[in-house]
Nucleic acid binder design. Structure first.
Lengths: 364, 364
DNA sequence: GCCATGAACCAAAGCGGTTTGAATGGGCGG
DNA sequence: CCGCCCATTCAAACCGCTTTGGTTCATGGC
């Protein structure tokens, strides 16, 4: 039926049987009575093959279920058509859901543009080594950097090893020297805080993400700026920085609301934290938007999206998925044309009014 | 400082500069005045090199920052040391958070055992083609299958193309012919329902996942079995099957609780849905564990884990991360020894009593 | 003293593509 | 009818690593 036997090599042991009847380039060429050179060119759209031959080749390729071996291709061309994402396992050993939404957006772009997505989940002690390994093995054409933090070593490492990369967020210490895509976190939280201040709130708490994260730093700046601009002192007792999980919102929310001088509004860095706060409020019999106002940053996580007109929370919105897609596009553009200048994109979050905010209660 | 020049080939254009000073095997061999053969063997632990040479080679490799080109290695050995995960984008275009927890568990195992994780996010129309492509390109050594459904075509496809795979869950129509790892969903929901029945509940609703999903089918069976065994009729008005997002729990919860004959207990297929139900209950002024009982399946999603003693929800628990890790191990074992028999693991969920259940209210 | 033995090392042939440099042959102007 | 040019096609080298099938040389048994 086809001519495998002639091409069987003495020392090649396939890992699993090829029942899918796939063919390699040489075999395909033999079938067509053409040279591998011509077949390769026909398939890759080079101009020096006749239209007739090209059609014949394409038809045969489809018929015999030809797919180029990606490793051979990479070896010959020097590019892997793969993008890496390194996920350091924090002490909490979790992949957060914001990340998975980002990945989902990026992944779609990759598959559309013919790239593979390689995710390395590594102990954070091995993060640096992982980047170096990716670089020297040439296993990916570039990487997307997540969660930049204050004093992030990756800035130097990546520039040193010369692997193309795009950062989701910004290294706090460096605005240049690399491409990034970030949400204007400072402005978003400035606006959210202003919004609460306009409603008459004066004791406003902030349940932020981890302290050293770049986005958390900027959000806090926006929050503090807004307060200071109105002459409201920043009360450290109202500011928390922890990993953004639901129990965090619940625990700190409960603690704040039960305190002697409870806030009338709470700003959250993630809708997951806001859910915890909402639970705490309800436990205490407080009504959102009346007794307590909550504004949260909303990454539009897919599994929490309601389609209702009035959103549950007033929020500063910016889609994680969209960010993932765009970051992927930026990186691939850079890979395909290394001469391109750096790209910087700062997205404004949309302040969306939902049911969780209202004027500050009079009695207090 | 080192001798690149001699090995520079005429037609190789590196994608990005190698500033990390990496060396390839041939160069390393030249540096050591050894043949590539010997160096390769030394590095890979073959017995026919002297201990002295091996040490010398290892030292030089480390010193010159040698990392084998993974593609060349794959090309020569026929194995990619990569595992694929295909994520079809549903109409809802989301990667659900259960999946990301699974991935996090699997990813850790991969990095420990030296495998890469390749995630393909594809339109669900291209899912089959993606598997075929992975197979004929040899780009992965095996795949993990997620979310088996009724009438799943992947069973036939994967067996046809002969790519090693492990299923998280089970194909409803086939218990054999492949390796799987599943939670005993039927039993878990049988027990949960029995638990509610024992507490005196008779109107018990089920907010299940999508109808055709294997796990949803089995959970429903457990639920119906329990009811039937006690002579309680299954009321179709109490059973829903939708994508497991928070607004689903809220909308259906609200609808159920406002209905003429509201349930006194609700069974949820995901803690995310349960959060929605809890929100609905609180909106209506009902107290969990008193006016309304809720039991949910709990995948122990990392971002919702509380460390408190009394969990928020009574639940049937089984860790997604652990499942991911185990599935990864199973697959790699199979890849490394294809002769291994199929593995089937059925995990029992743990019924954990939390604050969301209590005796059925008398007044009704 | 000779040859079998085995330890240590090596040359070369793959793996499956891409790319360079050259060959082939048909069309066309002179 | 001849020679040149362009359109096609091809052989061979190469990417970097593994592995087969030697070779070399010291050792030791007889």
């Amino acid at each position: 039926m086809n001519c495998f036997s002639s091409a069987v090599s003495p020392n090649f042991k396939p890992l699993w049987n090829t029942r899918g009847e796939s063919v390699n380039l040489k075999e395909l060429a033999a079938l067509l009575k053409l040279s591998p050179t011509t077949v390769s060119r026909a398939l890759n759209g080079y101009p020096e093959v006749s239209e007739a031959t090209r059609r014949r080749v394409l038809a045969a390729a489809r018929e015999h279920n030809y797919a180029p071996n990606s490793f051979a291709k990479q070896l010959a061309t020097g590019r892997s058509h793969a993008i890496g994402h390194v996920v350091p396992l924090s002490a909490h050993e979790m992949i957060n859901p914001h990340f998975s939404d980002f990945i989902s957006g990026a992944g779609r772009v990759y598959s559309r543009l013919g790239y593979d997505m390689v995710i390395s989940v590594v102990p954070d002690t091995e993060e640096e080594a992982t980047y170096r390994k990716m670089a020297s093995r040439r296993s990916v054409d570039g990487v997307v950097i997540h969660g930049p933090v204050a004093g992030d070593r990756r800035y130097d490492i990546l520039r040193e090893i010369g692997l193309p990369f795009v950062v989701h967020g910004r290294f706090p210490e460096h605005m240049d020297g690399y491409s990034w895509l970030d949400v204007n976190n400072k402005r978003a939280f400035r606006r959210a805080t202003d919004f609460l201040l306009d409603l008459g709130h004066r004791r406003i708490a902030l349940l932020n993400g981890l302290d050293h994260m770049s986005f958390a730093i900027r959000r806090r700046m926006g929050y503090e700026e807004a307060l200071t601009a109105r002459g409201v002192a920043v009360d450290p007792a109202l500011v928390f920085s922890e990993e953004m999980v639901e129990p965090y919102g619940h625990a700190r929310g409960t603690q704040l609301l039960r305190s002697a001088a409870p806030p009338s509004a709470i700003l959250c860095s993630s809708i997951i934290v806001a859910l915890g706060v909402a639970r705490a409020a309800r436990d205490l019999g407080l009504r959102l938007g009346e007794d307590l106002s909550v504004i949260t940053h909303d990454d539009e996580l897919s599994f929490l999206q309601a389609q209702s007109d009035v959103p549950m929370f007033t929020s500063t919105r910016s889609s994680m998925q969209a960010a993932g897609s765009r970051a992927a596009e930026m990186l691939i553009a850079k890979i395909q044309d290394p001469g391109l200048p750096e790209t910087h994109e700062l997205w404004e979050a949309v302040l969306t009014v939902g049911g969780s905010t209202g004027p500050a209660p009079q009695t207090r």
